[in-house]
């Protein structure tokens, strides 16, 4: 990260976790505005937890997250697919239109402009003609396209993506990568959790490698050096299930 980059999301000594167990431990750093950053790390490294913290779904156990130049409501968050009830009878159009929530809330009507917005988003992800189908009829890849369409409709300044290309075929991945590139070109700040280093190299400028604690931060190419990755794996393997209370002084 260059020093002159304005920081959009800053964390200071941040600890996030569940049931007092830290999943992200004493993390200090920040993500640059208008830059696509990937968060890398082995399973259980706290990547999704970090995104939940930034998205406001999880309150910090310690330290803090500061947002610079935008408010929490300008964040759009794409969690992993598993949390959606796809048997619920809702049409693709209505599902994508949920992305309008910040504009229309619980009672606002969906007018022509909103309708056009949703239609354009569906076109952008290649789901034209699916408007009236129920979400339960979509394949995994099509569902992920619908999730991206909802992000387009949300029109957010900061976009958080949690393993957006998991279990998605190659063609869908390429289409969605184009969309992320477009968001970047539009000046949006994108933070994405990825496992695929090739995609990380193609899409992102910066990378944060974590294993609960920060292992490395900087240009993607440097961060994914093998010694860093090996160090991250070792840090996760040494995790103690019966940890004592952390007495590390706040930085």
């Amino acid at each position: 990260m260059d020093m002159q980059d304005p920081i959009a999301i800053e964390f200071a000594d941040l600890t996030l976790g569940y049931d007092r167990h830290p999943a992200v431990h004493h993390l200090t750093g920040g993500f640059a505005r208008g830059v696509t950053t990937v968060v890398l790390g082995p399973n259980g490294a706290g990547k999704s937890t970090l995104l939940k913290g930034i998205g406001g779904l999880l309150a910090p156990l310690g330290g803090r997250i500061r947002l610079h130049g935008f408010a929490a409501r300008d964040i759009a968050h794409l969690p992993q697919l598993a949390e959606i009830d796809r048997s619920f009878p809702i049409s693709i159009f209505d599902f994508v239109a949920l992305g309008l929530w910040r504009r229309i809330g619980a009672f606002g009507g969906i007018g022509n402009e909103e309708r056009r917005k949703v239609g354009a988003a569906l076109a952008a992800v290649g789901l034209e003609g699916f408007e009236r189908r129920a979400i339960g009829t979509l394949s995994g890849g099509q569902m992920q396209r619908a999730m991206f369409a909802r992000l387009v409709v949300q029109d957010a300044t900061v976009i958080l993506l949690d393993e957006p290309f998991n279990a998605v075929d190659r063609r869908t991945t390429e289409d969605l990568i184009d969309l992320v590139r477009r968001w970047h070109a539009e000046g949006r700040t994108v933070v994405m959790v990825l496992h695929d280093h090739d995609i990380a190299l193609r899409l992102a400028r910066d990378a944060l490698l974590i294993a609960r604690e920060k292992v490395g931060f900087g240009p993607v190419g440097e961060v994914i050096a093998e010694e860093n990755l090996a160090r991250a794996r070792r840090m996760i393997e040494s995790f103690d299930d019966h940890a004592h209370i952390c007495h590390r002084p706040a930085a």
Binding site: G55, I75, A76, I84, F88, I90, L98, W101, R102
Partner: peptide
């Protein structure tokens, strides 16, 4: 349908 999404907005 999507409780996590509602919580985020």
């Amino acid at each position: 349908v999507d409780p996590v999404f509602l919580a985020s907005v």
